[in-house]
């Protein structure tokens, strides 16, 4: 993971509300605790967050309401001005950018989807999607042609003339997604995009999101308060609490090795087979039967049927086809029954 190209780097980012918050922070040698801040009449929304996000990954920021996750996302886009720290996007520090430069960066590199869709009520779906192009002064015909492509992409091609209030929640968010992709951003920010939708539609939109991602391969920062959603979508998850990041790991590592009781409380209801990969569930050794093995990165839930149907343990294969180990029926059954895995988790 660390070898791939890092596109977004947050270094010790703080967002503190209150009078003279920046001088308070800069005069401190030790990072202040929430109690210190409260004593000074300040309120910290984001406390010393450092993150690196790689090209093409889905990075989910998970936390309960008030944990600072949305504020952190807005610091990354500078919709909220961070109090301290630095944010590097492809090598340039966002916090040094002037208003004009920032505008250019947003036009060229960033797209954002909002929790409550944030569609302009006076514009039709098509005009909403075309809005970022209109802002740049593109001619109507050209921008609406492009917007139509985007609407087709999210499956709303026929609803371009409808106004937001004439669309369902799911449809409105499809428009929001189309709008955020109009400018072909490098990095795609989604702020609780599906939280306002009812469960069935939410599920459908998550599938749609994954479908789009296999097509587009964006770098994604996705904020949610729903751990199941995070597990379902994420390559890596950052768990936030009271403005600080508690743990950053893959869904599997979070479930197998939670950093503290707070994190493990979230993981309790997650079916193990859904997150654990064949690699972590297998037994080491060469006693696998045959060459028709399973991929090491496959999640157990997806290969369970094949392993259970097989005569003996099934080979677990690396990407180059080499045999890494064997997956036994017993291991699979134990995971399906959500028994805590006994083997120590592999170090990530």
């Amino acid at each position: 993971m660390s070898t791939t190209n890092r596109i977004l780097l947050c270094d010790n980012v703080w967002k503190v509300y209150g009078p003279d918050a920046d001088t308070f922070l800069s005069t401190r040698e030790q990072p202040p605790s929430p109690e210190d801040l409260a004593a000074a009449g300040l309120l910290a929304a984001v406390r010393g967050v450092s993150l690196s996000i790689s090209q093409g990954e889905i990075f989910v920021i998970m936390g309960l309401s008030g944990s600072g996750k949305s504020t952190l996302l807005r610091c990354m886009t500078r919709l909220v001005e961070p109090t301290a720290g630095s944010i590097l996007l492809g090598g340039t520090n966002l916090l040094n950018a002037t208003e004009r430069q920032l505008m250019q960066i947003r036009r060229e590199k960033m797209g954002m989807v909002f929790q409550n869709y944030a569609l302009m009520p006076h514009l039709s779906a098509l005009e909403n999607v075309a809005f970022p192009l209109k802002v740049q002064g593109m001619k109507r015909a050209a921008r609406e042609a492009r917007a139509q492509q985007m609407l087709d992409l999210v499956g709303l091609g026929g609803r371009g003339r409808h106004y937001p209030h004439e669309l369902s929640g799911g449809q409105q968010q499809r428009v929001g997604i189309a709008r955020s992709l109009t400018l072909e951003p490098d990095i795609w920010f989604l702020d609780e995009p599906f939280s306002a939708l009812d469960p069935l539609v939410r599920r459908e939109m998550q599938d749609e999101f994954l479908r789009l991602q296999t097509l587009l391969r964006k770098t994604i920062v996705f904020v949610t308060h729903d751990f199941a959603e995070a597990v379902r979508l994420a390559d890596r998850i950052a768990i936030m609490r009271e403005g600080a990041v508690v743990q950053v790991a893959t869904p599997e590592a979070l479930v197998l090795a939670p950093a503290d009781p707070y994190v493990s409380a979230f993981t309790r209801d997650i079916p193990r087979a859904q997150v654990v990969t064949a690699r972590s569930a297998m037994d080491l050794g060469p006693d696998a039967a045959g060459s028709a093995g399973v991929a090491a990165a496959a999640r157990v839930i997806d290969i369970a049927e094949r392993v259970l149907a097989a005569e003996g343990p099934v080979a677990v294969l690396a990407e180059d086809g080499g045999v890494l180990g064997a997956l036994s029926r017993e291991a699979v059954i134990r995971l399906l029954l959500a028994q805590p895995h006994t083997r120590p988790a592999p170090v990530q």
């Binding site: 807005r74 886009t77 919709l79 208003e99 505008m103 250019q104 947003r106 036009r107 960033m110 797209g111 954002m112 909002f114 929790q115 409550n116 869709y117 944030a118 569609l119 302009m120 009520p121 006076h122 514009l123 809005f131 970022p132 209109k134 802002v135 740049q136 929001g176 709008r179 955020s180 400018l183 920010f189 702020d191």
Partner: peptide, 24 residues
Amino acid sequence: SIGEAAAMAGCTRGQVMRLALLPS
């Protein structure tokens, strides 16, 4: 979020007001 959406679309301050906030 409507103002934010406009800012993310690359609006200037005036455009945010004229194109997004006032019509909304």
